[in-house]
Write a protein that binds this DNA or RNA. Sequence first.
DNA 1: CTCCATCGTTTACACACGTAATCGACTACG
DNA 2: CGTAGTCGATTACGTGTGTAAACGATGGAG
Lengths: 132, 132
Amino acid sequence: MAATPEAKAQSGERISEAEHAVMEVLWEEAPLSAQDVCAKVCAARGWSLPTVKTLLARLVTKQALSTTRDGKRFLYSPAMARSDYVGTESRRLVDRLFGGRAAPLFAQLAQAEALTDTDIAEIEALLKELKS
Amino acid sequence: MAATPEAKAQSGERISEAEHAVMEVLWEEAPLSAQDVCAKVCAARGWSLPTVKTLLARLVTKQALSTTRDGKRFLYSPAMARSDYVGTESRRLVDRLFGGRAAPLFAQLAQAEALTDTDIAEIEALLKELKS
DNA sequence: CTCCATCGTTTACACACGTAATCGACTACG
DNA sequence: CGTAGTCGATTACGTGTGTAAACGATGGAG
């Protein structure tokens, strides 16, 4: 698949844990209003609507979300691809804990028995593709 | 709270990024004095000795380090295994970003071209072992 | 014994984060 | 039109983190 031209991670602004939960909702479906987002996470995390509004505002500041007006309110959409976020986070972990090498991470997961049979099968398939 | 007999290595106390850098030094060699640790990280991170002392103290509080007296000063040693830390951090990432499944993480790394030929070879070898 | 170089400890302070109440503006119902 | 409800924006506040100076104890040099 062709890499998007702006493969660069958006500004250095880090996305926090709570903010990430909001991003996940919007990656799944967008655009959404603040209330829509709350309906999807407030129960699970025990948040109130004001909390979600704060997180949304911070994410807009960090340029992780963009907004469109819809009458009185805003609709929020991701301004960065989930794959970019996931990529930089994964890379960060691999760099920090495994000296930038992916194989030791894989070994770690294997040893921790965190690999299901399905995982193994899928990874095998991926390997085959990579070599072709 | 009842004293749940925690067979698990660590308590819930999270280790921050800066603290982790100190842990890495001590996982590599221990026991070390505060000055020894500083000699190994202060230059790289632009820290001063007081900063290292603070981090060491916080890690002792979090029970991530243990100390032995050596005359006037302390010698610090890890009180948790690096493999445990690495394991929980890896698990956390996989849970948070990939729904707890390892295969998508692998796919992500592959797509980001974060896999070297050596990585691929090693993972292949590991797979072979897992299946035997 | 005295004094100084070092320890660990205490205190400091700005910024990020989690969590939320409140406020001023605006819309929609009556 | 006015008023109630709803929106985003502003403000708040405790805790964690990064970074460090100041302080008090203490052991070793003279």
